[in-house]
Design a protein around this nucleic acid. Structure first.
Lengths: 187, 187
DNA sequence: TATTATCCAACAACTTGTTGTATAATAAAT
DNA sequence: ATTTATTATACAACAAGTTGTTGGATAATA
């Protein structure tokens, strides 16, 4: 990883891509190192120059797609509707949906769910709750609920091939978050 | 599974229990059939009389702990506070928490999350929404959000050793569900 | 006594992680 | 600029472990 960094990087990316193609169709425990290297056209032992085992590949892919603060557009650059938590979440999700759909879905990695939520919590506080000064423990559980809900809903939506249109989905979640279930059940 | 059903059942339970002990400490891909049978004191090939592979054990355990309609106490037997969706959910969760904490947690099986939500949706509709006559598609997504939120929160709560007391947790989730975030952020 | 359910020993094929080696790219020396 | 030394990259081959299967021994039922 020193003499020829371009080649190394390409090899590593080739292996990661081959892994991802396999992971799209099989649970991780069914993926062998042999399959990965065959797909990417390398010797099996080359794999071990770059990764510890198959799970290590997944971990490294996950780290790459954890959202960073820089990726969140500044609120004042957005319309009022766009500047809502769920709309921002939808944007972030769509951007990496190729990875999120799988990682957060039925065949995914629940460990990633937690990493994802833990990465988003401070971003939400930073973006929407700068002058919140109350019980941070309760807030943490509220955020856990909301983020779990958003993740579940978006993943379900993608899994169902966006059977609802994007605006309707937004309306359901946003109005629930704003006014609770009553707005839904009554009338 | 015919000549001596008691013995068979005991063997199967022994194997399942041995599996669960291992699963509590290792991800499923690290569990070998050899370990399971050694722990339960059987020959390795006996395992294959009862299960297809290690994942089959997990599937069968999951089927056993999916909540059934019979397990939900009739609403009229409960106090007003007890008869709320989240309180019922807490009750169901606590009952099988030994399994749910793991299956729905970081080291769990995301496939179970979906099975669990799909099992609960009709129970919720049956219990709370008998005379709901609106857009069932939107309702489905609302339920997906709420159930994802409840599952995430409860699992987080157990994972953090119930750092919040049960009443406070209930209050956070219940008031959010009833009135949305505003009750939280304002004041 | 005959049948067959339950459990087990042994087998071939595959996967894993490691070690030692060939090749090709860089750096150093003439 | 050419040759030589160094070492990064990729690979072949190995031992150990796992998998799923087959055929047989034992013990319970008919």
């Amino acid at each position: 990883m020193n003499k020829n960094p371009e080649q190394c990087l390409r090899t590593k990316e080739n292996l990661m891509e081959a892994f991802w193609e396999l992971y799209s169709e099989n649970p991780i425990e069914k993926i062998t190192v042999k399959e990965i290297t065959q797909k990417a056209n390398y010797n099996r032992s080359t794999f071990y120059e770059y990764f510890k085992d198959t799970h290590d590949v997944l971990d490294q892919i996950e780290d790459k797609v954890i959202p960073k603060l820089e990726e969140i557009p500044p609120l004042n650059s957005l319309s009022e509707k766009e500047a809502t938590p769920f709309n921002l979440f939808m944007k972030i999700y769509e951007k990496n949906s190729k990875y999120y759909c799988l990682l957060l879905g039925e065949k995914g990695d629940p460990y990633f769910s937690q990493k994802f939520k833990n990465a988003l919590k401070p971003l939400i506080i930073e973006t929407f709750l700068k002058n919140y000064k109350k019980d941070y423990l309760k807030l943490d559980f509220l955020l856990e609920f909301i983020l779990s809900g958003m993740i579940g809903t978006m993943t379900y939506w993608f899994g169902k091939n966006k059977i609802l249109n994007s605006d309707e989905l937004f309306e359901v979640v946003h109005s629930f978050m704003k006014k609770g279930v009553n707005s839904f059940i009554d009338k």
